[in-house]
Design a binder for these strands. Structure first.
Length: 611
DNA sequence: CGCTTGTGTCATAAG
DNA sequence: GCCTTATGACACAAG
């Protein structure tokens, strides 16, 4: 352990050095994380965790298969497995058990079910699929008290109401009473609990995150978690999957053992609406995240909105838009000492405040890109200066910020277990491409746009605009208008929203324009090069042609003289080339023409006899 | 301190 | 006429 700490310590020094190099835009030849000992260690742990998970999964599958086979019998004639004839109290699933769905009507008389039956029920209810990385929609990782040992598979199909149920042990909504009873029974099975224990551990935290929406990439977006579900498929609320996918079982390693106990102590207080603040609180109870006041508001808001959602399972985009989070910010007062602003890490404005950029005051570094005039303008706002900043921090608070919190243990001497989520990009497909693999400088460039959005967000915040900047900018005009129509906005709010939309779109347009311009310049430069080559080639060709022409003229002249010298008049005298010339008519006949009497000869052409 | 570069924004034209 | 997109021009920050 001490060794590990030492390695981690020297690793931290290395990381500091790498940080410095990185800040200087020195290409390290690999992403920064590659050099991070903690990162590598975590990857190792993740690997182990995955293997363990896979093992468990296979075990579960084997059990399932056994359960399946137990319900089948071998047909001696065909060699096929066929369903067993129903027992006295048959399951309705006289069909192939694989076809059993959640709608199956459990009429089992006995109050007990075999483990295999339970497993089968589980398998049928929550088919184990290879979809761990394909979670869609709003992911809600539900914290579950260890004693209850309730888990929801990340692969769980759409069960939004269940996922949002305040009571984590409640069976999914819509389950028939019998099925519900079976469900409860299943959950109480010690084998199952053991089998699934690990996943329960993994679910000891909660984060709301959107994994399949473009807005998710935006730093601001997750602050309106519900508001970004803009399509039908995101209705699905997957439990745990995001956190598991993202941290992939790394939570136990993140959490210091001391804190784990506290987690267990606190866990029962948690519910499905467990917010980001709670997350931080639980994992780092010593860390006071005072921006949580804003989060409290949000949490409270979410409590209502989530239950609303629960009551209205079929989402429509407008349902989501109408989940106005704006009011939640009213009470937000961020503590700038915990919610560090842009650390110039370039990764995002939410990177670790682990002292990687010391010496920067909170308000320093250009005050997040605010121009003086803008700062002045902002200072004229009622809630200016500090509150504005805090509001902005709140607006920027997002799951990535959780990583900020996650990295806090480093300050307290804990090994840093920071893990960067793969950044996604939004809106502009052209921008999206390659951003994950972009050099660090790209990330740094992105920073400014983030700050810009913050500026607009702050304006939006100041006027209590109940939408995210991303929504304002990126929604199709119809959806945008619909969204606007659902809220009573005053003139200034309307103007600001339209300005934000215009600016946002124009910003993207300007980026595209510049990109195109650069491409044009590069293309034109290439074209210029090729044209120069062509010119050189043509000039060479031309000189060659001139040379050839001269040669041919010379040759022709000698031939002409040769022919001319062979001409004789009636007396056998030769013609003088200075007095006569040979000319060819259009029909191919050759004439001997006296040079002096050209005009006359031309008129007398017909009197001359062809040669 | 001036220059260059990158970016956001505005005004305007065009689709 | 409204909206989006494209682009020149300008301002600003950072290197």
């Amino acid at each position: 352990m001490m060794m590990e700490m030492e390695v981690a310590h020297s690793g931290q020094q290395d990381m500091d050095l790498i940080d410095i190099l990185w800040k200087q835009d020195i290409d390290l030849g690999a992403r920064r994380e590659v050099f991070d000992y903690n990162h590598r260690q975590k990857e190792h742990e993740l690997q182990k965790q995955r293997e363990l998970e896979e093992e468990k999964r296979l075990h579960l599958l084997q059990e399932q298969e056994k359960a399946l086979l137990a319900q089948l019998q071998l047909d001696e004639e065909t060699g096929e497995y066929v369903p067993r004839p129903p027992p006295s109290a048959p399951l309705q699933s006289a069909v192939t058990p694989l076809e059993v769905t959640q709608n199956v009507n459990f009429t089992e008389d006995g109050d007990t079910m075999s483990f295999d039956e339970c497993l089968q029920l589980l398998a049928e209810t929550f088919p184990v699929e290879e979809t761990e990385n394909t979670s869609v929609g709003l992911d809600t990782t539900v914290s579950v008290p260890g004693s209850n040992n309730i888990m929801r598979s990340p692969e769980q199909p759409a069960l939004p109401s269940a996922a949002l149920s305040p009571d984590p042990v409640s069976p999914p909504q819509g389950m028939s009473p019998d099925l519900e009873q079976a469900w409860m029974e299943l959950l109480s099975l010690p084998e199952l609990q053991q089998c699934l224990g690990m996943q329960i551990e993994e679910s000891l935290s909660t984060t709301y995150r959107l994994s399949n929406s473009p807005e998710v990439q935006n730093p601001n977006f997750p602050f309106y978690p519900m508001a970004s579900l803009t399509d039908g498929e995101t209705n699905t609320l997957n439990v745990c999957s995001e956190f598991i996918n993202t941290f992939d079982g790394s939570v136990p390693s993140i959490v210091p053992p001391d804190n784990l106990n506290q987690i267990e102590a606190k866990a029962p207080q948690l519910n499905a609406n467990f917010g980001a603040e709670s997350f931080c609180d639980i994992f780092y109870p010593n860390t006071v995240l005072e921006e949580s006041s804003g989060q409290h508001g949000l949490e409270g808001n979410e409590n209502t909105t989530m239950s609303d959602v629960t009551n209205k399972p079929p989402f429509t985009p407008m349902d989501l838009y109408s989940l106005s989070p704006g009011d939640a910010f009213d009470s937000s007062k961020a503590n700038v000492t915990t919610e560090m602003p842009d650390s110039d890490s370039g990764i995002s404005s939410n990177t670790s405040p682990n002292g990687s950029s010391p010496g920067k005051s909170v308000y320093g570094d250009g005050a997040f890109g605010y121009s003086d005039s803008e700062m002045e303008e902002m200072d004229h706002n009622p809630g200016s200066a500090e509150s504005d900043y805090s509001e902005m921090f709140s607006l920027n608070f997002q799951p990535d910020d959780l990583q900020t919190a996650v990295s806090i243990p480093e300050l307290t001497g804990q090994p840093q277990q920071q893990e960067k989520k793969p950044k996604q990009q939004n809106t502009d497909p052209a921008e999206e491409i390659g951003h994950n693999t972009a050099p660090f400088t790209k990330d740094k460039q992105k920073k400014r746009s983030d700050m810009r959005l913050s500026r607009d967000e702050q304006r939006a915040r100041a006027l209590k605009i109940p939408f995210t900047v991303d929504m304002i900018i990126n929604l199709p005009v119809d959806d945008f208008n619909e969204m606007m129509s659902k809220h009573q906005l005053n003139e200034s709010q309307l103007a600001l929203v339209r300005d934000i939309r215009r600016r946002g779109k124009n910003k993207v347009a300007a980026q595209n324009c510049r990109k195109r311009k650069m491409e044009n310049i590069v293309g034109l430069a290439g074209e210029l090069d090729s044209l120069k080559e062509e010119k050189e080639r043509l000039l060479g060709e031309k000189s060659q042609n001139i040379k050839n022409l001269k040669e041919m003229k010379k040759e022709l002249n000698s031939l002409y003289l040769e022919v001319f010298s062979m001409l004789r008049d009636e007396k056998g005298n030769s013609y003088s080339p200075s007095d006569y010339s040979l000319q060819q008519s259009t029909d191919g006949s050759i004439f001997l023409v006296p040079r002096i009497k050209k005009t006359f000869i031309k008129r007398e052409d017909n009197r001359l006899s062809p040669l």
